[in-house]
């Protein structure tokens, strides 16, 4: 099945990022396709590259980069939501990009299921 994933909450503050990540990993391991991961609302903070989470905890940012690079998943933060929150090109983690809500529309059309976390 083709899944599109939307994440609406910021990292650490809410479990949505963790659950989304675990869902994507599980779906991939079962042979499903992830059309795209789209960050909206405070979810865009997931791609901020200025964060330095404590070393003895999971690194939510590094996990997204790993997903993007290792599995070739398109990971996008909404540009309008990013601008409001100080997330911008040049300050985002590797393997992700900033683009418009058209990307959310497109992935919703293309996927069999849109799953929203948050």
């Amino acid at each position: 099945m083709k899944f599109a994933v939307q994440v609406l909450r910021g990292p650490y503050n809410n479990q949505a990022s963790d659950t989304a990540y675990n869902f994507v990993k599980a779906a991939l391991s079962k042979g499903h396709e992830i059309v795209r991961i789209f960050f909206y609302h405070d979810g865009v903070i997931n791609v901020n590259n200025l964060a330095e989470p404590p070393q003895d905890d999971r690194n939510i940012f590094a996990r997204w980069t790993e997903l993007g690079k290792d599995h070739g998943i398109d990971i996008v933060a909404c540009i309008a939501a990013s601008k409001r929150r100080g997330v911008k090109e040049g300050h985002i983690i590797e393997g992700t990009r900033i683009s418009g809500l058209g990307q959310l529309t497109e992935m919703t059309i293309e996927a069999d299921r849109l799953i929203t976390f948050g």
Binding site: Y40, A80, A81, L101, G102, T105, T108, I109
Partner: peptide, 12 residues
């Protein structure tokens, strides 16, 4: 922000 998404999808 939800309304903003509605407008974009309406444009599509």
């Amino acid at each position: 922000e939800g309304l903003e998404t509605v407008l974009i999808m309406a444009a599509f």
